[in-house]
C-alpha cells in the first residue's frame, strides 16, 4: 500500500464540509437575529402609531413585552453562532485562529449568560406588572 494516493476521508474534504456547515449555521444565527430585529421594529412602529390604548394599560408594559421578545431572538441567534464556533474548532489550523475562536466563544458565551439573566428579570417584571394590573382592575391583590 505504498502508493496510496487516495484517502477514505481526505482532510481537504473535511475542511470544505465543516467550512460550509459553519457558514450555514452562522448565517442561520445572523438570520434569526435579523428577523428578530425586523419583527421588533415593526412592533415598535405599531406601538408608536397606535395612540389609543385601554385606560388601565401602561405603555411600559407593551414596550417591555416587545423588548423581551427581541432579547429572546438575540439569545437564539447567539446559540446558533456558538454552535458554529464549536464546529469551527474541528478545523482550526493556527494559533491565531484558535485565539480568535476562543475570544469569540468567550464573548458569545458571556453575552448569552447575561442576556439570559436579563430576560429572566424582564419576564418577572412583565408578570409582576400584569398581575398588578389584573389585581387593580378586578379585586385588591392578596
Amino acid at each position: 500500500m505504498s502508493g496510496m494516493d487516495w484517502d477514505l476521508l481526505p482532510e481537504s474534504a473535511l475542511h470544505r464540509a465543516v467550512d460550509l456547515t459553519v457558514r450555514l449555521v452562522e448565517f442561520g444565527g445572523a438570520a434569526v437575529i435579523f428577523i428578530g430585529a425586523v419583527w421588533a421594529f415593526v412592533q415598535f412602529l405599531l406601538l408608536g402609531v397606535r395612540r389609543r390604548r385601554p385606560r388601565n394599560a401602561r405603555p411600559i408594559a407593551g414596550f417591555n413585552r416587545i423588548r423581551l421578545s427581541l432579547g429572546r431572538f438575540l439569545a437564539l441567534g447567539l446559540e446558533f453562532q456558538l454552535a458554529g464556533d464549536v464546529l469551527r474548532t474541528a478545523i482550526a489550523p493556527s494559533f491565531d485562529q484558535i485565539g480568535q475562536l476562543a475570544a469569540i466563544a468567550a464573548i458569545r458565551t458571556g453575552l448569552n449568560f447575561f442576556l439570559g439573566r436579563e430576560i429572566e428579570a424582564e419576564r418577572r417584571e412583565v408578570e409582576r406588572l400584569s398581575a398588578h394590573d389584573r389585581g387593580g382592575a378586578t379585586a385588591p391583590a392578596p
Binding site: F27, G29, A30, I33, A40, L70, L74, G77, Q81, I104
Partner: peptide, 11 residues
C-alpha cells in the same frame, strides 16, 4: 439593537 448589529457583523 446595536448589540444585534454587532452580532450580525461578527458572523
Amino acid at each position: 439593537f446595536l448589540l444585534a448589529a454587532g452580532l450580525i457583523r461578527l458572523a
